[in-house]
Design a protein around this nucleic acid. Sequence first.
RNA 1: GGGCAAGUGGCGGAAUGGCAGACGCGCUGGACUUAGAAUCCAGUGGGGUAACCCGUCAGAGUUCAAAUCUCUGCUUGCCCACCA
Length: 824
Amino acid sequence: MAEAYDFRAVERAWQERWESDRIFDAPAHTAREKYYVLEMLPYPSGDLHVGHAKNYTLGDAIARMMRMLGYDVLHPMGWDAFGLPAENAAIQRGIDPATWTRSNIANMERQLRLMGTSYDWSREIATCDPEYYRWNQWLFLRLYEHGIAYRREAPVNWCPRDRTVLANEQVIDGRCWRCNTLVERRNLAQWFLKITAYADRLLADLDRLSGWPERTRTMQRNWIGRSEGVVFSFCVDGVDEKIDVFTTRVDTLFGATFLAIAAEHPIVPALKSVISKKHAAEIDAFAESLGSKSELERTSLMEKSGLFTGAYAINPLSRERIPIWVTNYVLAEYGTGAVMGVPAHDERDFDFARKHGLPIAQVIVPHEGSEAAAPLTQACVEDGRLIASGDFTGMSSARAREAVAERLTALDIGRKSVNYRLRDWLISRQRYWGTPIPIVFCDRCGEVPVPDEQLPVLLPPGAPITGEGSPLAQLPDFVNASCPRCGGAARRETDTMDTFFESSWYYLRYLSPHDARAPWDREDATRWMNVDQYIGGAEHAVLHLLYSRFFYKFFHDRDWVGGDDEPFARLFHQGFVLHDGEKMSKSRGNVVGIDETAERNGVDAMRLFLLYVTPPEDTSDWTAEGISGRVRFINRLWRLCIPFAGPEPPDVHAIPAVENADERALLRAVGIAARSAVDETHSRRFHFNTTIAKFDELLNAMSALLRSTPESPALGYAAHALPLLVAPFAPHIAEELWQRFGHATSVHLERYLVPHESTLAPEETTLVVQVNGKIRARLAVPAGMTQAEALALALADPRVRAQLDGKEPRKHYYVADKLLNLVV
RNA sequence: GGGCAAGUGGCGGAAUGGCAGACGCGCUGGACUUAGAAUCCAGUGGGGUAACCCGUCAGAGUUCAAAUCUCUGCUUGCCCACCA
C-alpha cells in the first residue's frame, strides 16, 4: 500500500521553506523581460474567505506561470489600511483603530501565506504607516503647488451617519456607498483635486487601453461624460443681467419657449427687482423646499416641478420674449445652471412644458419638405431639417449647429464649449483614521503648506472617536501649531484624506518601499512600470481606476515616471464567488473561510477548484461537492506519481520511445496540457479551467495506460513531468513530488514544460464524412491525407454509399484531417 | 427608459464557422470489502428494438456546413439613468 498524501504536513512545510529561502523575491535587474502582476491591495477587514481567494489565486497562478516562462516577475502585496471600519470598531467596541488594523493585517497576512501565494513580502506596505503616508502628504503638497489640490466652499455630499463628506463617485443612487444612508447637501469649505483638468486625456487615452474590459472603459467614458456644445447668453427683460445657458442642440434655438434655471442660480436675487413680492416669496419657499432635500429626493422624483418667476428672457436670435422658470430638474453644478427649454426637441423639456402648459414650438422636421406634425405627442430628438428658424431654415441640424454657433460668436454673445459630467474630486474627510492633510491656517498668512522637512504630520494617538464631529479638531495639541511662514499662532487642518488618495499610487511604492528620500525611485519605476497585469473587482471601475490614471498622468507630466502615462497596461476583473447560489455574508452565515477550507480540503485543492469551476471572469458557486472533485484529483495525482520517486533526478525533457497507441496518447496528453497552460497565459485569457481539465485527461490517460501497458516508460515520463505542469496551480504537491523525484532545487524556479511537436501531432485522426451537411460516417484515417484520398475512402464507405443512393456528389468540401462534406 | 454582456444535459461548464455536451459534480450499475468510506471499471441529452430521427432561449435569414455570423422577439445579469 503506497503512502497516502498528507496535505496538511506538506503544505505547511513548503510554505515555511519558500519563505525562508525567499524564492519569490523580485530579482535585481537582469536582461530578462520584466512582468509586474498586481492584485488590488485589500482592505484589512479581518478574515479572508474563498471569494478573496479567487482573486489572489488567479494573480498567483499568473505570477507563477510567468516566472516559469522566464520572466522577471514582481508580485507584491500590501494593505489599504486607513478607513472607516477601523473607526467604527473604535466607536462600537472601544478598540484603538491602529490596534484593530494591525491585528487584522497580521491575520490576513497569515491567511495569504496559508494559501501558498508567491508574494515578495520584502516589499509589503501598509498605507497607515507613517513611512507611507508621509509620501501621501508629500504628494498632496506637490499637487497643491501645481494648483491641482485646492480648497473652496461648495455644496457637497454629506453622509449624516458617517458624519463626513463624500466624493461624487462615492454617492450611489443618492446614498452613501458604505452605509447606504441618504446623502444630504451642505455648503462646506473642502479640499478638492482638480481631476477635471485631466478630463480630456483621461477620456482620450481610454481608446489606447485595449487590454482593459470594454465595459469598464465604457463606464469611465460615461462617468467623464464629455459633451460638446455652445454657451450663450439670454438678456433678462427689464434688468441689466444676462443668463448663460449651455446646449448641445443649438440648432433648436428657435424652438426655445422658456428658460429653466436651478433654484440656487445666482441670478435669482437680481430677478426680484422685476417681479412681484408674491412671486419672490414663492421662489424663496420653493428653493427652501428643495434645499433641505437629499439629492435622491430632488432628482429621482421623475416629477418635474417648477415655478414661474414672473421675469422674461429675450431669445438672442429670434428676439422672442420667453418666461423664466425656476425648476428642480436643472442642476446648479452642471454647465451654467440654466438651460433653454425646447419642448419640441428635448424629452425633459417636453415633460415640463406639458405639465405647466407652456407652448411647444417645432423647429426640426425629419426630412426636407416634411410638415410640422401638429401637435407633437412626444419630443422629437433626432437631427433633421430646420423650419421656422429665420435665416437658418432649411439647413440640416449638423450644418445649423455650426452656423448658429458662428452667428452667436460673431455677435459676441456665445462660444463653443465643452462640458463634463466629471466633477473635481473631493478628498476631505472629517474622520480620524486617515492621512492628515498637511496644511496650517494662519490668521496672518492664511493657508500655509507644511514644509517637506516637517513631514510627516503624524496622526496623534488618543483622539476621541465617538462618531460626533471631527476627532482631530478636539485635540488642542494637534490643532494648535505655529505658522511655518511667520511663526505666529496657527491652526492645523483637521480633515484627513479620502483613502482613495493612498490607493491611487501604492503600486509605485512597491518599487522602492523603504526609500526614505522619495516616494519611489525613478529608475525602479522605469524598470518595472507600468503594471503588466492588474487584477481586481469590477466595483472599482470608476473610483480607484480613474483616480489612479489621473495621479499617474500627473506624475508622468512631472517626469517622475518614464514610459507610458497609463499605470495599468492590462486589467482583469475576476467574478464573484457565491455560496449555494447566494452572496457570502456574515448575516446569512454562509461565509466559506480560508482557514476551514485549508484544514478540510487542502490549499492546493481549493486553488484548483477556484480556477476550475468557471472561467475566472464569471461568477462561480462554491459547493462542497465541487471541491471534492479537486481533492480527488490531488490524491489521484499523488497515487499515480509517487511510485516513480527515486534518489536520482530524471531528465524531464527526454521523451521516451514508445510503441502502442495508449502510450502515444499519454505523451500527447502531456504536451496538450502544457500547451494549454502556456496558451492561456500568453493569450491573457487565463481560462485555466480548460487547462486543469487537460490535467484530468492526462491522469485518465495514465490510468488507461497503467491497465494496458503497466511497464510503459511513458508512465514515468508523465509522472516526472506532472510537477512542472501543475506547479503554478497546485504549488505544494508539485514541490513535494519534485523533491521526491530527487531534484535538489525548487520546482518553482524551473522552466515550464515546453511541449514537443512530435508528441502533439497525432498520426491518426478521425475523418468525419457528411452528406449534405449530415454526419454519415466517422473514419479512422492516417493524418495528412490528400483531398482525393479522403474522397475515395469516403465513397467506399457503405453508409455513405447508401445515402448517396447511386448519385455522384455534385461538390465536396474538405477540411484536412477533420471533415469531408459531400453535396448531392 | 438607455447602453453593454449573456442564454448549451440534472448542475458547473467545453467547443468562436467544420464530430455539440471535453473535463468535473451528481446519478445508475459493477468490482473490491464482514460492512461502510476510499479506490477502480462501465454507463449517463431526448426518442426509437434498430437503421435512424430530434436537439445549444424562440422565430426567420446567410452558408456546402451555424451553439458560433445577421435580423426580430423573449429572458437574465451588470452598468447608466433628468448632465441640457
